[in-house]
Computed example of a mutant assay.
Amino acid sequence: MNSIAVAFVHGVEIDDPGFAARPAAMLRAAFARAAGMSRTDADDALGVEAVNWAPHIEERQRELFARMYSEEGVRTFFDGQLARLVKRLNAGRALALAPLAGWLLLPFLPGIPGLRGRLGPRGPRYPGARWLMLHFGGDIIAYDRQRNEANYVAAHESLARALARLAEKAGDGAPLCVLAHSFGSVLVSDYVYDQQETPRGRKLALWSLRYPDATLDKPIDFHGPDIAGRRTACRANG
Rank of each mutant, 00 (worst) to 15 (best):
N2K: 07
A5Q: 11
V6Y: 01
A7T: 08
F8H: 12
F8D: 02
F8Q: 00
H10K: 09
G11E: 10
E13L: 12
I14C: 07
D16F: 06
P17W: 12
F19L: 05
A20M: 08
A25P: 00
R28N: 01
A30M: 08
F31S: 10
A34L: 15
A34Y: 14
T40D: 13
D43R: 14
D43Q: 09
A45R: 02
A45Q: 06
V48P: 00
V51L: 04
V51Q: 03
N52H: 07
N52L: 07
P55L: 04
E59R: 07
Q61K: 10
Q61G: 01
E63P: 08
L64H: 03
F65K: 14
M68C: 12
M68Q: 00
V74L: 06
R75L: 06
R75I: 01
T76S: 13
T76A: 12
A83V: 04
A83G: 14
R84H: 12
V86L: 09
R88L: 01
L89C: 11
G92T: 09
A94P: 02
A94I: 00
P99A: 06
L100K: 11
L104K: 10
G111T: 07
I112Q: 08
R116A: 04
R118W: 14
L119E: 04
G120L: 09
G123K: 08
G123C: 11
R130Q: 14
M133Y: 10
H135A: 08
F136A: 07
Q146H: 06
E149H: 03
N151V: 06
A154Q: 06
A155S: 09
A155E: 04
H156W: 07
A160C: 00
A162C: 03
R165M: 00
R165I: 02
L166K: 02
K169S: 10
K169L: 13
G171C: 13
A174L: 10
P175N: 01
C177D: 15
V178H: 11
S182K: 14
F183E: 05
F183G: 14
G184I: 13
S185F: 15
S185G: 12
V188N: 04
V192C: 08
Q195S: 03
Q196D: 03
T198L: 15
P199A: 12
R202Y: 05
K203P: 10
A205H: 00
W207Y: 05
L209R: 02
R210W: 07
Y211A: 01
P212V: 14
P212H: 12
P212K: 12
L216H: 02
L216W: 03
L216P: 00
P219T: 05
H223G: 01
G224F: 10
I227W: 07
G229P: 03
R230C: 05
T232E: 07
C234K: 15
C234Q: 15
R235E: 13
A236P: 00
G238Y: 09
G238M: 01
